[in-house]
Amino acid sequence: MKRLALTLAACLLLAACAGSPAVAPSAQGGTPSADQVNAVAKNLYCPVCANVPLDVCGTAACAQWRGQIADLLAEGYSQQQVYDYFAAQYGQGVLAVPPARGLNWLVYLLPPAVILGAALLLGRNLRRWQAAPSAAKPGNDDEYTRKLEEELKARR
């Protein structure tokens, strides 16, 4: 049984080995390929179609935007410069994540702050609860696991 499970797990995981990381776009001059355009477009959102990334959006407006990206890449813009251009033209809402400035810092700072705060609180309380004098004797009082352990011990 164990060996079976093991083999299964190994097969399962080895299956994942196939495949290699995606190629990052490089766009120095020349006509950029559709893949290079899509790699940039993936992180842009056109206001016309809510929450659909630009690389898979089918509207005419999005097709034009992809054309614009191709033009900019052909002019030698870097990925970041393309994003800056689009943000300047159409507002920061087109970017997949807001640029870290001004109020937008809150996006990046608030969740970690809350989680860390809660973790600290939990840690402190755990220590306090642990320090509290306990009348109950330590030991396993989960009836099921106790019986299970006993049975297994008896079998050995």
Binding site: N43, Y45, P53, Q92, G93, A96, V97, P98, N104, V107
Partner: peptide
Amino acid sequence: QRATVGPI
């Protein structure tokens, strides 16, 4: 300005 918070 409305910000987008996307999958990344």
